[in-house]
Design a protein around this nucleic acid. Structure first.
Length: 872
RNA sequence: GGACGGUUAGCUCAGCUGGUAGAGCUUCCGCUUGACGUGCGGAAGGUCGGGGAUUCGAGUUCCUCACCGUCCACCA
């Protein structure tokens, strides 16, 4: 048998094993009518991005599920792919250009796009490779990109079909504008941050000189775009000035005073300046009152239409305007004011609300089905609470602004006719106006929101709009795994897109996980410099250790803190398995994995426990409790298999009895192999490596059958029987440790018990594990217990002659302590049992269990009392 | 303003359908026990945030309060 190194070295194994899987095409999912499909589409990472812990988290969960289902015999497809990430990628390339002293406008659209594609080709493979090092079993043959030909076709089809249905329209609305990215954003792309600011109270004189109105604002520069002042129609204070006009200071423009229900009489002065182009509410009021619209900011948030302030940056203008207002006596007061400022989710610049002509998706009709499928349980969120988050958003969803003033992305398929003004929206590139036939047409320069294409991901990746066999077989997908931070961006939009275009939900389960945070609980970010590089973790501890760390440290939907020490602990776990294997292999003479005909007590014990484990693991994975499943495997391997079963096997292996030796080998190998199967989805590399080194039938662990509960390997009686021996061993060990008896000292062990048969069967193990010399099982305590240490469990009294070590006083004290502990326990149980109501109302089995506990406590007390008496 | 999550051993977290608590790391004691010191054996450590209710019985259900956190909405 080949010799394994003493310490497991993931580096020597992982890439080799990954290549082995690739060569075997195990990741490739074939449509197979004999099998049930199981499908996951990857949340496409940014094509030029780098793997961070968030990805590692997300991908590990998906890989565990995929490998599990694959081993269960499903045609398991994990479909990989990447997102073009419009803004993020364009920003990066523009940054690179800026370092060369260029802007995208210097290059022009076409050349700039060449640059981005070059960038994509340069960095696009990095994240693919990183995903592979993690062990991801994606079907790389089906790799997709949101801007590849097929996905682009899907985008085009969806845009046109929604346009034809009247669900996409172009219109002038207040949108969120990022002056740094110089594009419109959707509502979802705005992040609100609480920032300290001011409330400036400004006086607008009435034109007739009869007084003035005072308005308050947090953005004084917007006054340049004021076209009215509004009051509430029911506000008695202002009834006489409604219909009058006032003079807009600094601008010296006459603007009307209007009445509108929108104004809250209780708030501030009850007078509100109306800036229709820079506030959504004012925009609505403006439409109702036919107010003039004055746009005062350009794309970079510099002042336009603002007289002497033109060309100033918005913050510069704010300062200047406040200064001028104060100087000219219009500034009444300044209050400190903390308010929420919208910022761009990409660059975190303050977003400006401004009126702009943009394309929108009409959400009302689409939301209806999207709400229904979650309400009626067609789509389930795990944990369930996120369905509430989702529904709340979907119920209040506003139209989705989908046009972006970028170049990198899917260009909007709309052509404007210079002659008749008609807009031609078309699946094929238009040559002429569909209405007047003019060739004097120009394509809309804008591109679509990145999320517009990711919304189609579950079906665009399978060939839609063509009717493909893949779609037929693999759609709808099964589980969508993602973080709660992109429920609105992505999950919501996939759901309504799936319902609208496929008439079928895109997945039945949405498994939501939390964020990985740093040890202080802070969000990891590049700017904070507190990020941990998963690749470095893989390098230091192995991918299996990283994966196991992530999976076990977490429960569904909750954030987790990342500790490098935990990776270390999991590496140790991998090493533990490695060495258990080393032990098994160095004792192996068989070349076939099969259970022996006869099973000893301890064999039945471990097999029965293994059987229960398989059941529990499957149950927990099925309900997406991956962390629970993984820890159960961990405990079984470390405690049951390594610390107990291997130790138990040693006497048989060394017994000199070839039959006994053989049986032990067989069970050792069998259980180890089952462990590898159970663990494989979580720790794929080391398990496959070991599987290959052990005698095995199948060609690869990755396609072995996942263990499940087997009635014929369930031995509950032997399990409890063996626990008695374990309890005895533990008790002896504890006592010896307490007395500082070294393992080399092996006294005679006399066991007095009613369960003599069990102890007799375990005699050899007692001597080995409890460091005993001779072991005697008897029904009568020794006549002379003088100088003997007594150890007591529920089922046994044990005596060890260790006279030279026995301090009688200490012994007595200890026994009294144990006695009083046992008596307290019994008192508690008896109190419970003497409670009429408990006995009458508690379920029978619970009462019986309590009675049994009481019996045990009584036995223990009797044992201790007896032993105490024998001490004299 | 609304919704949600958290509050359990020194630290980080488990604890599913109610029957007086577990793990990892840390700490302490001991061990060349021929797989593993990335190890073995043992020990210490918790009035499960406060208060109330339901129940024979509540980290576990309900109400309430406090603190921490997240999301959504947003009155200029």
């Amino acid at each position: 048998m080949k010799e394994l190194p003493k310490i497991y070295d993931p580096k020597a194994v992982e890439s080799k094993i990954y290549d082995f899987w690739l060569k075997g095409k195990y990741f490739h999912a074939e449509r197979d009518p004999e099998k049930k499909p199981f499908t996951i589409v990857i949340p496409p990472p940014n094509v030029t991005g780098q793997l961070h812990l968030g990805h590692a988290f997300d991908e590990t969960i998906q890989d565990v599920l995929t490998r599990y289902k694959r081993m269960q015999g499903y045609a398991a497809l994990w479909l990989p792919g990447y997102d073009h990430a419009g803004i993020a990628t364009q920003i990066k390339v523009e940054e690179k250009l800026r370092n060369e002293g260029l802007t995208r406008f210097d290059l022009g659209r076409e050349k700039f796009l060449d640059e981005v594609w070059a960038w994509k080709n340069k960095y696009g493979n990095r994240i693919v490779e990183q995903l592979k090092t993690l062990g991801s079993s994606c079907d790389w043959d089906r790799q997709r990109f949101t801007m590849d030909e097929g996905c682009s076709k899907a985008v085009r089809e969806v845009f046109c079909s929604l346009y034809e249905k009247g669900l996409i329209y172009k219109g002038k609305r207040i949108i969120n504008w990022c002056p740094k990215c110089t594009t419109a954003l959707s509502d979802a792309e705005v992040e609100y941050e609480e920032k300290p600011g001011h409330f400036w109270h400004i006086r607008y004189p009435l034109t007739d000189g009869s007084g003035y109105v005072t308005v308050a604002t947090t953005r004084p520069e917007t006054m340049l775009g004021d076209t009215a002042v509004a009051v509430n129609p029911n506000d008695d204070r202002y009834t006489d000035i409604v219909g009058k006009t006032c003079i807009l200071p600094l601008v010296n423009k006459e603007i009307p005073i209007i009445a509108d229900e929108y104004v809250d009489m209780e708030f501030g002065t009850g007078c509100v300046k109306m800036t229709p182009c820079h506030d959504p509410n004012d925009f609505e009021v403006g439409l109702r009152h036919d107010l003039e619209q004055v746009l005062i900011l350009d794309g970079e948030a510099k002042i336009i239409n603002g007289g002497k302030y033109n060309g100033m940056d918005r913050y510069e203008a704010r300062k200047a305007i406040v200064h001028d207002l104060e100087e000219q006596g219009y500034l009444v007061k300044i209050e400190e004011h903390v308010h929420n400022v919208g910022t761009c989710y990409r660059c975190h610049s303050d977003v400006e609300p401004l009126a702009s002509d943009q394309w929108f998706v009409k959400m009302g009709p689409l939301a209806k089905e999207a709400i229904r499928v979650v309400e009626d349980g067609t789509i389930k969120f795990v944990p369930d609470r996120f369905s509430k988050t989702y529904l709340n958003w979907m119920n209040n969803v506003r139209d989705w602004c989908i046009s972006r003033q970028l170049w990198w992305g899917h260009q909007i398929p709309a052509w404007y006719c210079a002659d008749c003004g008609h807009v031609t929206v078309s699946r094929e590139d238009a040559e002429k106006c569909e209405k007047c036939g003019s060739t004097n047409i120009q394509r809309d320069p804008d591109v679509l929101d990145t999320w517009f294409s990711s919304a189609l991901w579950p079906f665009s990746t399978m060939g839609w709009p063509e009717k493909t066999e893949d779609l037929e077989y693999f759609y709808p997908t099964d589980v969508l795994v993602t973080g709660y931070d992109i429920i609105f961006f992505w999950v919501a939009r996939m759901i309504f897109s799936g319902m609208e275009h496929m008439k079928k939900e895109p997945f039945h389960t949405v498994l939501i996980h939390g964020l990985i945070r740093d040890p202080q609980g802070k969000k990891m970010s590049k700017s904070a410099g507190n990020g941990v590089d998963p690749i470095e973790m893989i390098d230091r501890f192995g991918a299996d250790a990283l994966r196991f760390n992530i999976i076990t440290g977490n429960s569904p939907g909750n954030d987790m803190r990342f500790y490098v020490e935990r990776c270390e602990a999991m590496r140790n776990f991998a090493n533990k398995i490695w060495n258990a294997t080393r032990f098994v292999m160095m004792n192996l003479t068989i070349d076939k994995n099969e259970l022996p005909d006869t099973l000893e007590l301890e064999d039945r014990w471990i097999l029965s426990k293994l059987n229960t484990l398989a059941k529990e693991v499957c149950e927990n994975i099925d309900k997406f409790e991956l962390g629970v499943a993984a820890s159960k495997i961990y405990d079984f391997i470390w405690d049951s298999y390594c610390d107990w079963y291997i130790e138990l096997a040693k006497p048989r292996l060394n017994s000199g009895d070839p039959e006994a030796n053989l049986r032990a080998q067989k069970v050792l190998l069998y259980v180890l192999t089952e462990i590898l199967k159970l663990l494989h989805p979580f720790m794929p590399y080391i398990t496959e490596e070991i599987f290959q080194a052990l005698p095995h039938d199948g060609e690869a662990l990755i396609i072995e059958k996942y263990p499940e509960f087997r009635e014929d390997l369930s031995f509950p009686k032997e399990e409890t029987g063996f626990e008695k021996i374990m309890a005895a061993v533990r008790a002896v060990r504890a006592r010896r440790a307490d007395m500082n008896v070294p393992p080399s000292k092996k006294p005679h062990l006399i066991i007095v018990s009613d369960s003599a048969d069990v102890f007799s069967a375990g005699k050899v193990y007692l001597s080995k594990l409890a460091y005993a010399g001779e072991v005697t099982i008897t029904s009568e305590p020794p006549a002379d217990t003088n100088g003997m240490v007594t150890v007591v469990t529920d089922d046994a009294k044990m005596y060890m002659p260790l006279s030279e070590l026995v301090d009688l006083d200490k012994e007595r004290e200890r026994m009294r302590k144990e006695l009083s502990k046992a008596e307290d326990e019994l008192a508690r149980i008896e109190a419970k049992l003497s409670n009429e109501k408990f006995v009458s109302r508690a379920p029978e089995n619970i009462v019986a269990a309590e009675r049994e506990k009481a019996d045990k406590a009584r036995a223990l007390i009797a044992n201790i009392t007896e032993s105490l008496a024998s001490l004299g």
